[in-house]
Amino acid sequence: MAKKTKKTWDGYSLKPKREMPEGLWLKCPGCEHLIYKSSVRENLNVCPECNHHFRINAETRIKYFTDQDSFQEFLVDLKTSDPLKFKYKGTTYKKRLKESEKKTGATEAMRIGKTFVKGRPVILAVMDSTFFMGSMGAVVGEKFCVAVDKAIEESLPFVVFCCSGGARMHEGVVSLGQMAKTSAALAKFNDTGGLYIPVLTDPTTGGVTASFAMLGDVIISEPEALVGFAGPRTIRETIKIELPEGFQTAEFLLEHGFIDMIVHRKDLRSEIARLIDYCKK
């Protein structure tokens, strides 16, 4: 009954809305154009009008980046055991993990595996921003280190797609420790002479930026990705001034000398393949 009363005439026809099924059109946050969803999807989830790079999940990223069906995943079932037994606001971390799993179909915020890019073998780690904002907890840290171990063992280049809100609060100091853990693994990898390429995508902030994202031999970023240590909201609240335009974007970091290059999503495969060829011993 209540539903019926809601749909009473309020001066605007509801008809056009019904005729246009939801999810066919998309408003690009970059240029505010209305674009066809399918045209975005065909264009590697990049806006055909303004080159705005939409966020994509790990599944799609692997599909775009690797040679067809070449991804062999490691440690698929690695799960966190909720070290702090974290409870908040009437729910628990465990419950939220399960919900997130159901919603996204991912088991954690990172997937690792061996794959081929234009025929070149690489160890790949891909973060998934749809799962707990891609935050780094015990599992992400462990997977990362296992991937590094593999890369050392098989002396392969290591490529990581970073996209994360930072350390996972729900795991407390365990997740903070992952910053040290991943950085230590990379120090070892560096000593063995391996090539490490992190690719920063929208958004890369917090503990991930302050550990493995910034430790690359060559650091690549997608255009206009948000990359920073403290999030823009935190900064605005702390220092209480308006932030300059383009603050903490990939272009900002390039200008200040913290990344090597900005590469369009469609060119990532070829650029990384070329870098691997250049850095061969």
């Binding site: 910053m179 302050a210 550990s211 493995f212 910034m214 240590f229 403290a230 913290f258």
Partner: peptide, 16 residues
């Protein structure tokens, strides 16, 4: 967390 600190690479400094 400030503009200057970000410009000079707070994250990179800590990671290093």
């Amino acid at each position: 967390p400030g503009v200057g600190a970000e410009e000079r690479g707070q994250a990179q400094a800590i990671a290093y």
